[in-house]
């Protein structure tokens, strides 16, 4: 299988302080990878750096996606290449409805114009998967959404935008059992509909139950501390991160 994402010796800093000290990671098309690790280890930093967050500076190494070096590309270019990040705390954007925002995002990433009616149909199908009330389409983007609603709205965007690689940053955190089920169903639907790759940053194994995990990476103190298959998840669940620190 061809490598979709290849990260080599990646060093990332935030305001002068180095957080990632040389990370290597490769994801092939269609694979599902999981990143686990203690708080503050740099998991979310890695996800944000792949998306090109202005909060972080890449001080060394490279990120190659689909054969193209995207290390210094702007986030919108990365999105157009097919990368998607589900935010841990999605920003509230007043005055813009979820539907109109997502329609213009769709047009940007696909480069195609879509008629309103056709788009609303597409949106409705995705909302059905997530059992979202259709009133959400016309609410202001993330404004006044509960934690669970924000996460569902992120997965909704994932289903509509159909990227090649979806990075899910603690999409399951702060969700009740039912919400985790709904979100998992959404992720599974993405996988089935697109055959895309997943990079799942999580503390919780519940969200992984419906998925076949190909590879697990443990990040501790800004480095990959261990790698393995799905069995590594069970080990962490049983024994915690102590042996990796």
């Amino acid at each position: 299988m061809s490598e979709l994402l290849k990260i080599t010796a990646l060093k990332v800093a935030a305001e002068e302080k180095e957080i990632l000290h040389g990370v290597d990671l490769a994801i092939s098309a269609g694979e599902t990878h999981v990143i686990m690790g203690p708080n503050g280890a740099g998991k979310s930093t890695l996800g944000a750096a792949i998306m090109g967050s202005p909060e972080y500076t890449v001080t060394g190494g490279s990120i190659v996606f689909d054969g193209a070096d995207i290390t210094s590309e702007t986030p919108d270019k990365r999105a157009k290449h097919g990368i998607f990040l589900s935010f841990q705390n999605p920003t509230e954007i007043p005055g813009i409805t979820l539907s109109s925002f997502l329609r213009s995002a769709y047009e940007q990433v696909t480069g195609e114009h879509i008629k309103l009616f056709a788009f609303r149909k597409k949106l409705q199908e995705a909302m059905d998967v997530l059992q979202m009330d259709k009133a959400y389409a016309d609410r202001e983007l993330n404004v006044g959404f509960s934690g669970g609603e924000k996460k569902k709205a992120e997965i909704l965007q994932l289903l509509v935008l159909r990227p090649e690689l979806a990075i899910l940053d603690e999409t399951d955190s702060g969700l009740d059992v039912d919400a985790v089920k709904t979100v998992s169903a959404g992720i599974k639907a993405y996988k089935e509909q697109t055959g895309g790759s997943l990079l799942i940053i999580t503390h919780n194994t519940k969200i992984l139950e419906a998925l076949n995990v190909d590879k697990t990476h443990i990040i501790a103190d800004g480095r990959i501390a261990a790698e393995g298959g799905a069995e590594l998840i069970d080990e962490v669940t049983a024994n915690g991160f102590d042996k990796f620190i």
């Binding site: 702007t74 954007i93 813009i96 995002a105």
Partner: peptide, 21 residues
């Protein structure tokens, strides 16, 4: 950044925030 991560360039992202405001 949030809007740019969805494919909007910097110009469009800012314009969207302003018109929403």
């Amino acid at each position: 950044f949030y809007l740019m991560s969805r494919g909007l360039d910097e110009n469009s992202a800012k314009a969207l925030i302003v018109s929403g405001f």
